[in-house]
């Protein structure tokens, strides 16, 4: 799966995008956040307040109980501030 990060989340994690196979015990966005948080201090800092992070799968907003598949493009980002 492909994972993208934007704005301050990207800065804290230190990468804009990464690709890896979905681990067997990760089935939802919530699981993925838990998995990523354990990957390193930048991730832990980025996901320290998961309730403020928004998630998108294949360009649509999804709730954190959304089920993932290995072909998904997942994005995590702070609340949007365009316009």
């Amino acid at each position: 799966m492909k994972i993208l990060y934007f704005a301050w989340l990207r800065q804290r994690i230190g990468v804009a995008a990464e690709e890896f196979d979905l681990p067997a015990d990760v089935t939802t966005i919530d699981d993925l956040v838990g998995y990523l948080t354990a990957k390193g201090p930048g991730y832990a800092k980025g996901f320290a307040e998961p309730q403020v992070i928004r998630a998108a799968v294949n360009y649509e907003y999804v709730p954190f109980d959304h089920k993932l598949s290995n072909n998904d493009e997942v994005a995590f980002f702070p609340p949007v501030t365009g316009g």
Partner: peptide, 13 residues
Amino acid sequence: MDWLKTEAPFWKL
């Protein structure tokens, strides 16, 4: 405009 501000994935630095 209202929907764009809350839905479109832009971030301002």
